[in-house]
Design a protein around this nucleic acid. Structure first.
Ligand SMILES: [Mn+2]
Ligand SMILES: [Mn+2]
Ligand SMILES: [Zn+2]
Ligand SMILES: [Zn+2]
Lengths: 152, 152
DNA sequence: GTGGCATCTTGAATCACTCAAAACAACTAT
DNA sequence: ATAGTTGTTTTGAGTGATTCAAGATGCCAC
């Protein structure tokens, strides 16, 4: 799904009925080289090339793209929202309690929605969201303290 | 695990090395009759009987009790944190996208940590947290709009 | 009972995000 | 090409949930 060429980004936007604008193109382009990043991080990535863009515009873009299912928003407990370009595959996440690193995990069981709760009491579940908490390779070996930068 | 008698609450606190105070006792008592509730809701429940208690004290109590694993905090996307007395069983949650209702689900597969991610890339996962999104019985049938009160 | 330290109160501040009005610009239709 | 329509962005302010800090209080070990 990730796309580097500007023309592909444009058609992705048009296909969703969204106007092709500089902030939207820049945000999608930035998300090709970053994953599980915050609105602030995306703003920082976009700003040098497009100095006129505001943080509020980035929030607006991220909201529109999320609604259109062009990007995905995840909200791990204690962390600001994070965004990624990988959508439609119902994958899940590992979050390191040491350094805040977020990694993708393929669906643990079957396909989306990959799990069926046992006692739904009438609930109709449409999706399952899983976060595995643990320690990444380097934190597991070195008992690191979380850097402020990507702490979760 | 839930306890109604004040003496049991006191020993639970003492067993965790926490001093027995009025705000802590009141919060734990309130959580016997409410589940998946916000700090505000707990504060509202506690306040009439203990008018001197501050919201900040409730936040402090909830933090201490969560750290001591006497209560559990869940943070569904888009919702303020919610607290419950049911701990230690690694159960999961159904959240209604219509009305915000949160319901317990028993562990879908096996015991805690109930799932093993497929490609951990060196991550050591210690717990798995699952949220099922869907619609509760009444929202499924009546296409309700979420009431402000418990929207998620 | 007293001391020491955890806890609570009071008050302010922060973070992530949202809201609103006016300026702007992408697409549509001429 | 040009203008109109409407969605998008800019600018500026505001909100909700939570946290921080300093001083007062009170729990509990002795
Ligand atoms: Mn991902
Ligand atoms: Mn629960
Ligand atoms: Zn780590
Ligand atoms: Zn519902």
């Amino acid at each position: 799904m990730p796309t580097t060429r500007v023309t592909d980004i444009a058609s992705t936007l048009r296909a969703a009925g969204l106007k092709v604008t500089a902030p939207r193109t820049a945000v999608l382009h930035a998300l090709d080289s970053m994953s599980h990043v915050t609105a602030d991080q995306i703003f920082a990535a976009v700003h040098p090339a497009l100095p006129g863009t505001s943080l509020q515009a980035v929030y607006g873009v991220l909201g529109a793209l999320t609604d259109a299912a062009i990007i995905r928003r995840i909200e791990p407990a204690g962390s600001p929202a994070r965004y990624e370009r990988r959508v439609g595959d119902n994958h899940h996440h590992l979050v390191c309690t040491g350094c805040g690193l977020v990694a993708d995990v393929d669906c643990a069981v079957g396909h989306a929605p990959c799990l069926t709760p046992s006692n739904t009491e009438g609930f109709v579940a449409t999706s399952a969201e899983i976060i595995f908490w643990g320690r990444c390779t380097s934190c597991a070996s070195s008992s690191n303290e979380p850097p402020e930068e990507n702490r979760v």
